[in-house]
Amino acid sequence: MTETLEPVATVQTLPVSISVNGQEWSGEVPVEEVLLDFLRLRLGLTGSKRSCNSEVCGACTVLVDGRPVSACNYLAFEAGGRAVTTVEGLAVDGRLDPIQEAFVDQVAAQCGFCTSGQLMATRALLDENPTPTYDQMAEWLSGNICRCGTYPAIARAIAQVTRATTAEHESIHEEA
């Protein structure tokens, strides 16, 4: 789908190197190209979704150096020299991230269109706070809209992961 990227008028481009899911990408990108187009159209990583296109709904959430950003309003060149993680990069060596497993177990996705954004935002939350309270997770995830209304199931999925985390801590503690 590279056709959409080539506007008729000549535009200024910038050379950038971006690490996407651990792979280096180097090349020229138009200055106004947003990260979401860069991922979806240039790299074919279509797991990140375009919905509101105005940084409101969170469907395009990806991690840039571990922090969640809305790729629809984040310029691709700004990611130069940084590490971008998308939903396609969450599973490592074919092993699902625990949060992906928990979303499946708890049916924390229905149509699934917001799911990659929910997963990336949740990953960032748990990286920062491995055992959030309900209010902390609700506050953190309120930038990710789910019209199917899976919020209670997402809360259960996060609880499933944090229970495991807590159990792990406890078992480490016991061993120590």
Binding site: V87, E88, V107, A109, T115
Partner: peptide
Amino acid sequence: PRIDLLEKVTGQAHYLDD
């Protein structure tokens, strides 16, 4: 698991725009 969810949590489900 619901059979569609593995693709949905790994970004492999292809919607219209994909």
